[in-house]
Design a protein around this nucleic acid. Sequence first.
DNA 1: CGCTGGGTTGATCGCACTCAACCCGCGTGG
DNA 2: CCACGCGGGTTGAGTGCGATCAACCCAGCG
Lengths: 263, 263
Amino acid sequence: MIAGGLRLLVPAMRSALDDCRSCEARCRSLCGSVSGAGLAEFADIAETIRLRPHQRVVTEGDPAAHVFNIVSGAAKLVKAMPDGRQQIVGFLLSGDFFGLPVGGAYPYSVEAIGEARLCRFERARFEALLGRLPAVETALRERLIADLGAAQEHMLSLGQKSALERLAGFLMQLSLRAGRLGLPSNPVQLPMTRAEIADYLGLTLETVSRTFGRLKDRGLIAVRGRHEITLKAMAHLDELAQGDEAPMVRRAEGDLRCRSVGS
Amino acid sequence: MIAGGLRLLVPAMRSALDDCRSCEARCRSLCGSVSGAGLAEFADIAETIRLRPHQRVVTEGDPAAHVFNIVSGAAKLVKAMPDGRQQIVGFLLSGDFFGLPVGGAYPYSVEAIGEARLCRFERARFEALLGRLPAVETALRERLIADLGAAQEHMLSLGQKSALERLAGFLMQLSLRAGRLGLPSNPVQLPMTRAEIADYLGLTLETVSRTFGRLKDRGLIAVRGRHEITLKAMAHLDELAQGDEAPMVRRAEGDLRCRSVGS
DNA sequence: CGCTGGGTTGATCGCACTCAACCCGCGTGG
DNA sequence: CCACGCGGGTTGAGTGCGATCAACCCAGCG
């Protein structure tokens, strides 16, 4: 999960929403944690929302009155600076959860990528439910820990990796994630634009475009259309993303310096 | 909290540790969430550990058998790459909590900065306790959400901000954090080295050193010794950190300002 | 004393940013 | 039907911020 992933609430909406059947398979692992009664309670406070492309559901800094769950489509979590710079801190796919506030306010804005359908809960009621359903509370904790881990992994990318390494890692992430959702993991589908990839990876759209070219030149990927990438050497891509292969920059390992005394 | 902050367990150690009194004041807000019996249970499974400077308690990738709570001193969360590059994803101060695994393994290494004392719990027992103490589970959830928010804020820094903006933001963070711990918030104490600041901000130590110089030249800070910084214009520093003032587009204006001072 | 770890400063380099032109597909409307 | 605009993408030329390499400084300490 690149960011706010939390797939436990989808089952709750089966009775509230009529066309959620595509979610059923992929969230089965967490269905067991919700009792029949609890499931009904979730359905009770659920509300369906449809989003047009680029439409915003949540605005950074607003008081957090609701939490959300993506049913279908994709969205992005955006943190903006006053001068227009922005960082996408995560992409959300169907089943992902978001909207938990920091200090009472949303810490990011959320906008749809393409059409999206999602499910809304009043936050107060949602939190009240958590108290009554410890299994859900535990599942939520697990997801938060996973998200925190993903965030830390992304910090490593943003702070230390080259453009090539970041993009390779991004493609591998998308592939793994699609696989977990039961979708084909090799021709990777990119619902987002180059500019959005750039804002996620801390690069510019030109650099992203050029870096796709470099990956293609190396024979690691094939670009088919704007939104489909074929991974031609996943193991190699992964090595590249991890920085395993010879990079231009090699930093000395500080702790073992005592070995080679001045010679 | 810059990273794995979680201050709820400290009270539990009052009976297990004799000299934790400095923690008492700062964790009072969460003390109420633990019943007397629960507190005793925590004390029961607590174990004290002392660390020498640079000593490692947790290694990235190892199976996570314990969770920890910092009693005194400071530590860093480090993610490393095979070629030696590393990203510090957080600094821990007294009261902070860490060690929750992603996929069963620690997602980072943890090393002491200077001397540190901490408290260790077996993870299985800790999680069992969470089930019996819902108030603690809730407090843990709150801390995880706050940590996730801090991580996302840091992504914005790493992905979009200049060296000057990152360092200004870092100093403001440290100041706020010290204030929350009941320590003086203006002459900021830096327990870590320049190299560690660099690895946290995604810069090199040379750039960090030069950027301290630029902040000093602008009259925003005063550097006293290696580990103490006086913030001379916190409002201005904060604007700088947020990117409110003229950023990358017209760097010339910033240079103009320096020139008029210099010549 | 000299050694060592941490910090500062200078000179140079290079990756990614910036600015800019251009391409392509698509929808709209004359 | 083509003209046009527009959003998204690619490519090229030049720039600059921060990385790299390398002295040098300073304090603590055996």
